[in-house]
Amino acid sequence: MDALHGLLGFVFNTELLSQYGWRLLSGVRITAEVVLLSCSIGFVLAYPICRARMSRNLPLRSGAAGYIAVFRGTPLLCQLYLVYYGAGEVRPWLTGAGLWWFFRDAFYCCILAFSLNTAAYQAEILRGALGSVSRGQREAAAALGLSPYRVARHVVWPQAFLAALRPLGNELILVIKASALAAIVTLLDLMGQTRLIFARTFDFSVYLYAALIYLAATEGIRRLWNRMERAASKHVRQIEPLKAAHPAPPRGALPIVSAEAVPPG
């Protein structure tokens, strides 16, 4: 009975929501800004890192590998502390370099730390996706007389995009979850506002409200991504029953460029 009473008290705790709901919403806005900015900047950084990682130039390749190992091998919280409190320690130098305005702001520090971190993960995702396109396809396309740009544009990228779609969606979800660390360096994101409300009310259910908001965001993105993936891979699935209906080509026959290799568009 006690438990039921507690349950009802939680579900109908509208007082807390009506008093502090707007605070949670403003926290959601900051969280959304941090996540979207970090993910976009991370994506832009990820491509050159990925190319460097796949390059034949040894220093370039090992530099990129080192970057990825450091950012994936240490906790994000540690990286955030290094950026935020580390910048404070070298303030005279940063002021001299004209960069202090940037590091002074907790928001920018978070964006920097999160972008550098997610860039390492996204670079590995891109590398995996590019690696999933077989060499033979590139060679075949080149043999057909396509320019390197058109090989990339029409053969490699459409397939790599499909392969990268799901892991990139997962990475977006991970960044949303990781963004809660921003609260530790004074940013009033969703987690920050939640802590603040808790400090005022000592009502633990505010943490559960926050959990539900995060859950709605991550679950919503997961569903959206499933749909996007289904839409983007329509052509692949439509061909599959046909493939099954036809007998496999005899050994030694010329390989036919399947519909998978050259998606429309």
Binding site: G6, L7, G9, F10, F204, S205, L208, A211
Partner: peptide, 19 residues
């Protein structure tokens, strides 16, 4: 199942009230 997840959260909250 999503609703169940919400239910799980509520259950945790209810447990916290008890001392």
């Amino acid at each position: 199942k999503l609703l169940l997840a919400v239910g799980l959260a509520c259950g945790l909250a209810a447990g916290m009230g008890a001392r």
